[in-house]
Computed example of a mutant assay.
Amino acid sequence: MKIVDVSAFYAPQGGGVRTYVERKLKAALRLGHDITVIAPGEMDSVERRGGNARIRWLAAPTFPLDRKYRYFDDQKALHAALDEERPDFVEASSPWRSARYVADWQGAAPRALIMHADPLSAYAYRWFGNIAARPTIDRYFGWYWQHLLTLDQHYDMIVSASPGLSRRLKDGGLRQVTTIPMGVDPGVFSPKLRDAELREQMLASCSLPPDATLLVALGRLSAEKRWAMVVEAVMAAGCRAPVGLVLIGEGNEAPKLQRLIGENPHVRLAGAIRDRALLARMLASADALIHGCEAETYCIAAAEAKASGLPLIVPEEGGAGDQATSAVDRRYRSGSARDAAEAILSLGRGTVVPLQPARVMDDHFAELFGAYEAIARVKAAA
């Protein structure tokens, strides 16, 4: 099967979507599929990735709010690329403009929309949640729901990675929603990587002794991740118990977070950790993962922490909250630093997490591509 992924969020310096796409390319090759990722780039070009895997860049302008990314602005060029590729199945990986471009393409191939973003949770609910109930916010953002309902009529499948997001989409009237959870890189994360010496070093970097609680956080430093709220929660908990936080990631919120941290020695911004083996050791050596974003569509960070044997301290909503399934996990009221601080203090250091087999990304792609093949067979028969 030839699969074309129109991936508006893919960028060489990107985060979760880049990780997802890179794994998809390898999985497609292993499962015998031909795959092309069409992404917005600096210029028109094709990047070969071995076998029948490639990235086709279409010249596109930079995204003004984050110049690491670009965005599709030429529907004719995208349609011409799809015509030339002649796919058996087409994906759109953003619910915005590119999804409409793919919906309007006149080709016969079936298509799926991958919900890599939850704009209502990331923006509308976060901005207005303190002054209005969600049904009221949904009414004011009825144009977005209508946009999704229109896409639902043009796509054969809308893929959500978390049960919570799937429920909300279905409650909003969408009929093509399918839940296919993601997973972690196989063979990377494990509780066996716990390193007492590394743990002491991380605590020492937070000016804390070995008997303190070490929290780790992981993700892009952007406003919707609510890292400022997480930092406030950790500092509040630290007034009552020795608690340190190592926050791994980079992004435009870093200066704001550094100002918030100020002279507090117990919270450290560690920057990006691109060495996956080191990242896995750091996760396994912490006492818990804390996360702040209620708008995650899956939350790879929480999945990697679970695979590393960590308890989760996460908001009650969104993909992160959906992953808090163990009795040792803690869920707090979304957006509340006070509740998050109480959740931190309620989690005793050295908590033993029941071992669960980790779902890996290969499971996700096998299920996803199998669904594509089934839809393509039905379409062909019709």
Rank of each mutant, 00 (worst) to 15 (best):
R226Y: 05
R333Q: 14
A161R: 10
P110T: 01
C293S: 15
V102E: 14
V328G: 09
H33N: 00
I344Q: 10
R349H: 08
P265C: 13
T297D: 09
E197C: 06
R349C: 07
N130K: 10
Y69T: 00
R167M: 02
A376W: 05
A39L: 02
D156E: 12
A27V: 01
I300C: 01
D322L: 11
A280I: 04
V353C: 14
E296V: 00
D275T: 08
C299R: 04
I248T: 08
A223M: 11
L165G: 06
A376T: 09
L25N: 12
E84S: 15
L31N: 08
L355W: 04
H266T: 08
L165M: 15
H33T: 07
H291G: 06
T179H: 12
D339N: 12
V6G: 13
G370H: 04
F63C: 00
A103S: 08
H33S: 01
A133M: 02
G219C: 13
R54K: 12
Q258D: 12
G16W: 08
A99S: 15
R139Y: 06
W143A: 10
D74V: 09
C293G: 13
N130H: 12
R226S: 07
A161P: 10
R56K: 08
N252L: 07
F141W: 12
W105D: 07
A122F: 02
E263D: 15
V184P: 01
L310S: 02
R377A: 13
A204S: 10
L165P: 04
S190H: 05
P315F: 08
A109F: 06
D44R: 09
G16Y: 10
Y123L: 03
H291S: 10
V234S: 09
V234W: 11
A254L: 05
A358Y: 00
G321W: 03
A80C: 06
N52C: 04
M157N: 12
I114S: 10
M361Q: 12
R30E: 07
R126W: 00
R18Q: 03
G50K: 12
A337P: 06
L31W: 05
S190L: 04
Q323F: 01
A366N: 05
D363Q: 06
Q75I: 10
A280C: 11
L245C: 07
G129N: 08
G335S: 00
L257M: 02
D44L: 03
A303P: 01
S334I: 09
P357N: 07
A109H: 11
A272Q: 09
L151S: 15
V102F: 14
I114K: 07
M229N: 14
A307Y: 00
I248Q: 08
N252M: 04
Q13C: 03
C206V: 03
D362N: 15
L208Y: 05
A236I: 00
G107P: 01
I313T: 08
F141M: 12
V267P: 01
G50E: 02
V352T: 09
A81Q: 08
E304C: 04
S285I: 02
V353I: 14
V17T: 11
T178Q: 14
L165C: 06
